[in-house]
């Protein structure tokens, strides 16, 4: 059989061992990069470093080691790196033209990371989507919405549109709009609402609750009652306060009106027909 000499020739070829060494460099480089990433994660957990910084540091170390290993492997194979870099320059122009959107997303991603408008763990609103930021990557930001959907928002979209960070500051204001009947004494309504906020432990004492007159509506006097709460308790406050306002208004006899319509008969129309009925216990029929 001539297989053995062929294998022997293959193994003894100087290029064979270069390829083996290059593969070993790649494998070891990958393992070292992974181990370094894990070490950074453990270190961050121990030191309670925020997720955003940890992710950035982990990726930077991982990809740097990987690129260095790749270049070392190429060097091992005898590839001239300076020629390769020159080729890469030309290639990058060509790729740049071909992938403008991706390039734009990458640049936008760098700006987003630098600007720090939000970090991993924040809850943001972009267009119609609201969710928790679970990762900020080179091309896109991933959100987890409250109904547990995974939303990928391209970085370019984030740079171009308004982003609302709902968890940036420790306290938030809840603006509750409520209408009361025209007959109600607004000073009394104000006092009832103030007392309610005072009793609710979720309402912050300072900044003080705001009572704002919005205007005379079609069926009600429209008011806004704004109270502050800790960010974490915002939803609780929103739910409890609305119920408490309803109950307090019911107790105090303050009417929350629904739309009213008054009907008139003009000279051009016939009068409304009136039917006379007798009330139980009444001696004479009611008019």
């Amino acid at each position: 059989m001539d297989l053995l000499p062929r294998i022997s020739a293959f193994v003894n070829h100087p290029m064979f061992w270069d390829v083996v060494r290059a593969v070993i460099i790649l494998i070891v480089g990958g393992a070292v990069a992974k181990a370094a990433g894990s070490a950074i994660r453990r270190f961050s957990l121990r030191r309670q470093i925020e997720a955003q910084r940890e992710a950035l540091a982990r990726r930077a170390v991982f990809y740097t080691i990987l690129v260095l290993a790749f270049l070392a492997a190429l060097h091992q194979l005898g590839v001239n790196l300076s020629v390769l870099l020159g080729t890469a320059g030309i290639l990058s122009v060509a790729i740049g033209f071909a992938s403008q959107t991706s390039a734009s997303n990458i640049i936008s991603g760098l700006f987003l990371i630098g600007e720090k408008a939000f970090v991993i763990g924040d809850v943001i609103q972009v267009g119609t989507e609201t969710g928790e930021v679970i990762s900020i990557d080179l091309l896109s930001v991933k959100l987890r919405t409250y109904d547990n959907l995974y939303v990928r928002v391209p970085n370019e979209t984030l740079i171009k549109s308004n982003v609302i960070n709902l968890t940036r500051f420790p306290i938030r204001r809840y603006d509750m709009q409520v209408g009361v009947a025209y007959k109600e004494d607004l000073a009394r309504v104000h006092a009832v609402l103030e007392e309610l906020a005072d009793r609710n432990p979720l309402c912050l004492t300072e900044p003080k609750p705001l009572f704002i007159f919005l205007g005379f509506g079609d069926s009600s006097v429209n008011l806004q009652f704004s109270v502050w709460a800790r960010r974490e308790k915002y939803l609780d406050l929103r739910n409890t306060l609305s119920l408490e306002v309803k109950n307090a208004f019911d107790e105090a006899g303050i009417e929350i009106p629904f739309p009213h319509r008054s009907l008139y008969t003009g000279s051009a129309t016939e009068p409304f027909p009136v039917r006379v009925v007798s009330q139980p216990g009444a001696d004479t029929p009611a008019n």
Partner: peptide, 19 residues
């Protein structure tokens, strides 16, 4: 359980406290 309150020069710079 006392009410929460905010103590600081603005609504974004300060500290949560009890009132």
């Amino acid at each position: 359980a006392p009410s929460d309150t905010w103590f600081g020069p603005s609504t974004y710079g300060g500290e949560l406290c009890y009132a």
